[in-house]
Computed example of a mutant assay.
Amino acid sequence: MAAVSDFFSLGSVVWCRTCYNKEVEGEVLAFDPQTKILILKCLSSSGDPKLNDVHFINLSLVSELKVKKEVTTIPEAPQSLNLQRLNTRVRNQVDEKKRMLQAISANVSSEGQSLFIAIAKTINEVRWRNSEIVIWNHEVIISPPYQLENIQGNTTSKEYGYIRKVVEKHMKDLGLNSQNSPVCQNSSSSQ
């Protein structure tokens, strides 16, 4: 285990090797001496120069640690956080995860679960009613086996048309990714 400094200056560059033999180098964003958690801003793993990766390093699990560049000047005060915006994002993510869990825990086919997740990515008002996917408070309902012909609702409404396009796109995406899918076989035979 590496010797842990009592303090890391914000903006300093630190290199470490974790107990998993992963090397991480980045700029210190924060350090909590009580939990021995070091937060580093690193170059993006995607290669995009506009983005950064942020690593939370538990220094109790670090085998080597080096301060490559110590910052001696006091950095600017960090910007204050918009807590209302953060809380909204957390709430939205929790709601999204609940919908995804609902899809996975529903006692329906994998095709139904997959379609539910695809719809839930763009529409918040989607839920299960037994094995049916209910969208916009019963405006549109999709029954098993979750094909285009299983969409119910006012066929002239824009909601129905939108959901039909979502289902068509989902079926097309499944056709590109999984040629042996039952959804793909049914959709290709109806064209």
Rank of each mutant, 00 (worst) to 15 (best):
I117K: 07
I104P: 02
W128K: 03
I135P: 00
S109H: 07
I133C: 11
E111C: 14
Q113V: 04
Q79A: 15
R127A: 07
S110D: 12
N124Q: 12
I141T: 08
F116V: 02
R89P: 01
V126Q: 01
A106G: 06
V94R: 11
S114R: 13
V134D: 10
R89V: 09
K98V: 09
E125W: 02
I117H: 11
S143H: 08
K121V: 00
A118I: 03
V108R: 00
S80G: 07
I117T: 13
V140Y: 00
E139W: 07
G112A: 09
T122Q: 12
S131C: 09
M100C: 04
Q102D: 15
W136N: 08
M100V: 13
I133H: 04
L83A: 05
E76S: 10
I117A: 10
E96F: 14
I104G: 01
I141G: 01
S110A: 10
H138C: 09
S131Y: 03
L86M: 13
A103I: 01
L115T: 05
I117Q: 08
E76N: 13
A120C: 12
R129V: 14
W128N: 00
V94N: 05
E96C: 08
A103R: 02
R91N: 14
I142N: 05
K97H: 08
E125R: 10
H138N: 15
I141D: 00
E111Y: 04
I104A: 02
I142G: 01
K121N: 10
K97P: 00
M100K: 05
N92D: 14
H138A: 08
V108M: 01
S105N: 15
R91V: 02
V140T: 01
S131N: 08
F116A: 02
R91P: 00
Q102E: 15
K121R: 09
E96W: 08
E111V: 10
N130S: 12
I142Y: 03
N87S: 14
R91T: 11
I119G: 02
N137Y: 12
N137P: 04
S143V: 05
P78Q: 11
L101M: 13
S80P: 05
Q79T: 12
A118K: 07
I104S: 05
L115P: 09
L101F: 12
N82K: 13
R91I: 03
I123C: 09
N124S: 12
V126M: 00
M100Q: 13
I104Q: 03
N82R: 10
N124E: 14
I117D: 04
K97Q: 14
D95I: 04
Q113D: 03
Q93E: 15
V140L: 01
S131H: 05
N137R: 15
S80Y: 04
Q84T: 14
L115G: 06
V108P: 03
L81W: 02
S109N: 04
E76W: 05
A106R: 02
I133A: 06
N130L: 09
